[in-house]
Design a protein around this nucleic acid. Structure first.
Length: 424
RNA sequence: GUGAGCAUAGCUCAAUUGGUUAGAGCGCUGGACUGUGGCUCCAGAGGUUGAGGGUUCAAGUCCCUCUGUUCACCCCA
């Protein structure tokens, strides 16, 4: 088609079927997270550019080339949020949420924006459900967050998601490891792809998860972060694993888990599924004990972000059809059009979902429409019925049709709790 | 930002070595059934072949440019 105005690249319209799926996921997440004491918050979509520049890190891809940044009418630089954690921390510090004592357990959902080339499972506006536990530094918090996430996938019926965990160390041990890694990489530089050679200076940790076979081979004897962890980090990580195991959460230690955002420390984790194509992560997160300091505060925290589109791609929706109408009221004759409206309104007042024809189509066309919209029953009203005060009730699942008086009908469907079934 | 593929009806796709009126399925509308869906049969509506230029007697088909889109790299949810 040649309509002249289209949605901009990477921005999509989410139609009724997909919106229903998003809504379903969000509702389930809300229920599930609240079982662990997390409460929903709503955060701005627009923030000062500085929040992300400092929080996420100046050298990261997100800040360098993926942000939607522009000036408002005052000339201040604003950015459409590329992720939620920085905002959550800002809100925590600004709103004094720590004053309530204990760990602030919050979650949120909504659109994020990144100026990337779209591909499967990746859009410029995409939806995340984020969860953060701010104010707790101990390994039990990490374990709870990962457990909650893992259980959520189970609950959504997605069983082939793997949980990968790693420890990134802290400011006292990570630099030591980084140096050791750089030393190693410089020794095998000729065997690395050109990309990885560049990474040695830009972000050496990234070489760890390069997919080029020759790089993997070259990385065979590379030092691992885990053997460089300081005593505190080592203990923290092993405690996390211990508790996860006790909770029955299956996870795999993967030294290749390297978060792209600067603020992560210690525990990092990822939920991946190989049915997603190249964008295999459906959720990812980690601990960010030094993020608050970038904003002039001080609070440890851990959290994750879940990609709603990606989770929706993994779920089996065949067995979860969208809800359909309870009734379709068809007008058999022109004179019954108005009575049909009245009847439909009466049913809707009793919280029944009711469809009617608004295009004055033939009865046959109305029946077809009713079948297509998936109505459970059709009520037919025409001259004969009006004369006798009855209705034709046709059950579309069985094909049976019966004549009942209007009184009877309302008694059984809108009076006492219906003995047939509670549909929706 | 880089690379490759694709672009034909509302949707999914056909169309011979370039060849005359661009087809089919699904969907839509109507009919067979003067007030009854799903199955079947019949009919109808629906296209500037993404846009622009070029080669040719002739272009959906070949060439160039642009735009869009998909997948991958990169990166990430």
């Amino acid at each position: 088609m040649s309509i002249s105005i289209r949605a901009i690249r990477g921005f999509r319209d989410i139609g009724p079927d997909e919106a229903y799926r998003h809504r379903f996921i969000e509702d389930q997440a809300r229920d599930h997270f609240s079982l662990y004491g997390y409460r929903e918050v709503r955060l701005p979509i627009l923030e000062p550019t500085e929040l992300f520049a400092r929080g996420i890190g100046e050298g990261t891809d997100i800040v360098e080339k993926e942000m939607y940044t522009f000036q408002d009418r005052n000339g201040t630089s604003l950015t459409l949020r590329p992720e939620g954690t920085a905002s959550a921390m800002r809100a925590y510090l600004e709103g004094g949420w720590s004053a309530q004592g204990g760990i602030a357990k919050i979650f949120y959902h909504g659109p994020m924006f990144r100026y990337e080339r779209p591909q499967k499972g990746r859009y410029r506006q995409f939806y995340q459900i984020g969860l953060e536990a701010i104010g707790g530094a101990g390994p039990l918090v990490d374990a709870e967050v990962i457990t909650l996430l893992s259980r959520f996938f189970n609950k959504m019926g997605v069983d082939d998601v793997r949980i990968l965990v790693n420890s990134l160390g802290c400011p006292s041990c990570r630099p030591v490891y980084r140096q050791a890694l750089v030393d190693f990489l410089e020794g095998v530089e000729e065997d690395l792809c050109s990309n990885c050679v560049r990474r040695i200076t830009v972000n050496p940790l990234r070489v760890l998860d390069c997919k080029v076979p020759s790089c993997r081979e070259a990385m065979d004897g590379a030092p691992g972060m885990l053997s460089f962890l300081c005593a505190d980090c080592r203990e923290h990580f092993s405690k996390v694993q211990e508790v996860l195991e006790a909770a029955g959460v299956v996870s795999t230690v993967d030294p290749g888990i390297v978060r792209g955002l600067d603020y992560y420390s210690r525990t990092a984790f990822e939920a991946v599924c190989d049915r997603l194509g190249a964008q295999s992560a459906v959720a990812a997160g980690g601990r960010y004990d030094f993020l608050a300091a970038e904003m002039g505060g001080d609070a440890p925290g851990i959290g994750f972000a879940l990609g709603v589109e990606r989770l929706a791609m993994l779920m089996d929706w065949e067995s979860r059809p969208s809800p359909s109408l309870d009734f379709f009221v068809a007008a058999a004759t022109p004179a019954s059009r108005t009575p049909v409206l009245r009847l439909a309104e009466r049913l809707r007042a009793a919280s029944k979902a009711v469809g009617i024809d608004l295009e004055e189509k033939s009865l046959k066309a109305q029946m077809r429409q009713a079948g297509k919209t998936g109505a459970a029953r059709v009520i037919i009203l025409g001259d004969d019925e009006m004369r006798s005060g009855t209705l034709q009730i046709r059950d579309f699942t069985t094909g049976n049709q019966e004549t009942v008086t209007e009184k009877e009908f309302f008694r059984s469907f809108c009076g006492e709790p219906s003995p047939t079934k509670g549909e929706s």
